[in-house]
Amino acid sequence: MAYDFLDIKLIVNGEQVSARVPARMHLVDFLRMELELTGSHLGCEHGICGACSVRVDGVVVRGCLVLAAQCDGSDVLTIEGLSESKEVVDLQNTFVERNAMQCGFCTPGMLMTAAELLAKNDKMARNEIREFMSGNFCRCTGYHAIIDAIEITMEARREEERS
């Protein structure tokens, strides 16, 4: 079967990337298979589970619902890039300390979403954090520890601002 291919140029985790991609290939397949960035995961490919969450032009999107070809000219950040940037290193450390993950499959997506929440710098009640995180499925933790980790980090950041 013949399929269309498209040439794209984009920035992924700060690096220039040029590639020829099948028109039908979604962004996470591209990241995982072509760029070997395996930190973004696929749990449903229907836009429900959030395991594929990545940042495109500063906004968190479901990488399974975006075509690689759509990202021509975009700036894409994956968990690998987020880690490197140290933007949420406090949250990552708290995730580890608070045991806010078990199998870890949802974790990159959770962190991507939580990073967006932390960037808002709003004071949020626990149930509001739960609400914000409710697009990311975790089968292992029951969420309590994840919400704790986000709450602890949020509080620590406020504390730091105050002092």
Partner: peptide, 21 residues
């Protein structure tokens, strides 16, 4: 005691290695 898990340290950086990886 509450010791942290080594695999957790990898998972938060997107460096867990699952079969499909």
């Amino acid at each position: 005691r509450n010791l942290s898990r080594d695999k957790a340290k990898r998972a938060v950086n997107g460096r867990g290695r699952y079969t499909d990886d």
